[in-house]
Design a binder for these strands. Structure first.
Lengths: 198, 198, 198, 198
DNA sequence: AATGAATGAGGGTTCATTCAT
DNA sequence: GATGAATGAACCCTCATTCAT
């Protein structure tokens, strides 16, 4: 890659980064192309040259974001930790990467975009499924998950918890800084309301 | 209330109803005052006369919505059902009332509105807390919730599950029409990943 | 019509007039809504409130213009003049009304507008046809037009001459100010290249 | 001319051809440099290297077009046909070359371009005049044109008819496929509304 | 109280043109 | 000479809001 292309790639990265930053803060609709251009220090037109339209930009931002989240999850699973620790790490995303995942807002943006829906569908089936399956196996092996647990339901449960947590920073922050809240919630996810029978 | 005031009140209701309907479908930003005025069959100015501004209207819509959701929860708790049934009813909102609760979108609208934040804060402390407490007591009494469970954590857990479920209709719908999925998820909420020890 | 509506109608007229003026000078594409708004001393949005879009405005301008041209033609025919005089008046449009008829430009604007095409089609069939027929009858009665001349061809010939003349002010002006050129051209239209046999 | 320069010349031709094609279809304003570059398979900048600006390109396109039309007329006149046949061929341009002559649109492009006006002026005086004169002489010789017909008026009449016909494809096409319409119109051009006295 | 008309500010997008390689 | 990348200016249009009745 010569200097020309590297510079181009740098600008593209800068745009994506600035867009992500702003979308996180204010949502897709409220952020204008002009805002992003200013933040990335490029002309508006450069954004159009790279992404074609605002929708095109949103698409790329969402794709990049989901990929990053998945990479993070893969990494967590590879680490040498217990199942509860991994579960907690994935759901609460201490690295803050996934906090960028604006649950509902993302859905809103994707709702009327068939191409995006297809991409996500295949992303889910091909990439996420594998990661989830790995985690499930480990949970069963270590005795934290019932052997009867189906993969499908486990995957759904996991995502609901993730989205629920991401959608509730206001509530969680109210309880902090007692950091134990994460541990206790995680306990609930594993043992349920009933708690561990002992 | 005379006929004149009743008519006035009707218009206000119509505006709120139309606004809610449209906000549900397209989110706050995408719906214009003009859209709402057309749907409610009033002039734009009438909306301003009643609500002062778009933000004012949003505020009232959110308040009305949250109140309705709470009423629904109260009603569920009063019914003659078991704790798991009530839990399921509240979280999955079969009545679809809470599906109007555009999780993340609502937060986005509230984020920069201190007045609204105050209202919600007190709403949570005074009204929601009571309902949650009732449910928690019942869960403990019937043996579905560990006696050691704190009210604060229970409330947080409940809200995370609610928001997670509301944010995941795409995933849940993919599994349907096997309606058992609701029951099985509810089972997970109560007994956790580990499942009931028996 | 009360004062409110009269004022509204005045603004609409002002917009149409300004638009026509500018379109005449620079063509449809080169004139921006902003230009028209400035010329008519209204806000851009007012134009949108009245005409919906730039295309909508163009439509109305074209319709108004064609109607005015036709009215002028009707008036000419009613006057107490000879056939050649009327022919000349219609084709050369000394009143300059029809000089506003930007032949090709208008067609360009209409090309991709089915609704407009329909309107023009019916306008031609219902209104123009009648006027043309009146003129043709008179021409035959006075002996300036061959009795064998079909109405269809006469109408086509007339329009070709009109459009050709409108499209050629550059050439005609080069010959002026010898005003006789109009008379001589008109002579050509009636007697052809061969001239009158006498 | 070596291979290098030939290649360069080819690109220039390709650009002119693509530009003409697109201008014909959509007019000068609606076609962007980017469109032309894509159609000619060159970079936008190459167009600027060759023509300096969009206006420069338009100038060259117009010049090339007018030259082609004139060449065609010359060719027609050289053929072994009667005057009416030649007149018809020139006015109706069955070869479709002149259909590229976007009457009014071209004028619009030329209007504010003094350089272009000068070029056209001299083109008219030096080249077109000669061709017209040849045709006029032939018409008089064969007895189809009155001996008293001045060259100036004949030229003007011819151009008006040409432009009128080019501006009226919509009307002419409505009468087709009765191909006789061309002949009958041509008859009108020669003998006028009054028709041949016999 | 209610409305139709009007608007300033701003949004996404396209264009002719220039820069850097 | 040719190109991909970048841009300032402008365009059409929409919105929340106010004015005049």
């Amino acid at each position: 890659m010569n200097g020309f292309e590297r510079k181009k790639e740098q600008k593209k990265k800068a745009i994506l980064q600035a867009a992500l930053e702003l979308f996180k803060l204010h949502g897709f609709k409220k952020v204008s192309i002009s805002d992003i251009a200013r933040a990335a220090d490029v002309s508006q037109v450069t954004i159009y040259n790279h992404f074609g339209s605002k929708d095109g930009l949103i698409r790329e931002v969402v794709k990049a974001l989901l990929s990053r989240i998945l990479d993070k999850a893969r990494e967590i699973i590879r680490e040498d930790k217990s199942f509860p620790e991994k579960l907690e790490a994935i759901i609460f995303d201490k690295t803050k990467i996934a906090s960028e995942y604006q649950g509902e807002l993302m859905r809103a943006a994707v709702r009327n975009d068939p191409e995006m829906q297809d991409w996500i569908e295949s992303f889910w089936q091909e990439d996420v499924k594998q990661v989830t399956l790995d985690l499930l196996k480990e949970g069963k092996r270590e005795g934290y998950v019932s052997p009867r647990q189906s993969e499908e339901l486990f995957s759904l449960y996991l995502e609901i918890l993730r989205r629920g947590v991401f959608a509730s920073p206001d509530l969680i922050n109210k309880i902090e800084p007692d950091v134990e809240v994460y541990r206790e919630l995680n306990y609930l996810f594993i043992y349920g309301l009933m708690g561990k029978k002992d």
